[in-house]
């Protein structure tokens, strides 16, 4: 019997009553989430169950949603059953103040570096990881650069008006300007130009 999204959903609901939630199928890819404490249990069940057999970890990454209080960081696993050729997406949300998630590196060797990358960029602390240190960025870095609070452009620039082209408002981070600071800068500039005059 072919493995369908419906079967996977039923099996998961049967095994983890009420724990695995948020079932969706964007573009036909079954997506669901679980509390962060049970991420390993779900992954192990998906891996070891004879019928499900999701034994290939395609991808692991994180997403930052600053507006969601208490679940700011999402860790996203893409799993693949190569025999039945079915993919699923599994999400675990964690708060940003204590982003502890159990490591999947005992189950998948491939998770080792992917978790290091996720830690490097989002600061997700993978509990039990054998070597959780930065991988792409320098070791001395003190912040997690892919979090949304780090804007791409230099915030002290005042010569560029992005609002004009509508790009300032994207993702709710458009009002990055510190109005107070901005006023001081422009006042200071005006004073400078007065002095020159």
């Amino acid at each position: 019997m072919a493995l369908t999204n419906e079967t996977i959903r039923l099996r998961l609901q049967e095994k983890f009553t009420g724990e695995v939630t948020g079932f969706e199928e964007p573009f036909g890819l079954l997506t669901f989430s679980a509390p962060k404490d049970s991420n390993l249990k779900v992954l192990q069940f998906l891996y070891e169950d004879a019928e499900l057999g999701f034994q290939f970890l395609t991808d692991l990454c994180a997403v930052h949603y600053p507006e969601r209080r208490g679940e700011e960081l999402a860790v996203v696993y893409h799993l693949h059953n190569l025999v039945e050729n079915v993919r699923i997406r599994f999400k675990v949300y964690t708060n940003i103040s204590q982003p502890d998630v159990f490591t999947a590196s005992k189950l998948f060797e491939s998770a080792n570096w992917m978790e290091r990358e996720t830690y490097d960029f989002y600061g997700v602390n993978f509990v039990g990881h054998p070597n959780l240190k930065r991988i792409l960025n320098v070791d001395e870095m003190e912040y997690f650069p892919l979090r949304k609070e780090f804007p791409l452009e230099d915030q002290t620039r005042i010569d560029k008006d992005d609002e004009m082209f509508g790009r300032g408002g994207t993702n709710g981070f458009g009002d990055r300007w510190d109005e107070e600071k901005l006023r001081t800068i422009s006042e200071a500039e005006q004073n400078d130009s007065k002095e020159i005059l």
Partner: peptide, 9 residues
């Protein structure tokens, strides 16, 4: 081995 290769992604 095939098994290890799959596990390593």
């Amino acid at each position: 081995s095939a098994e290890r290769a799959l596990n390593y992604g």
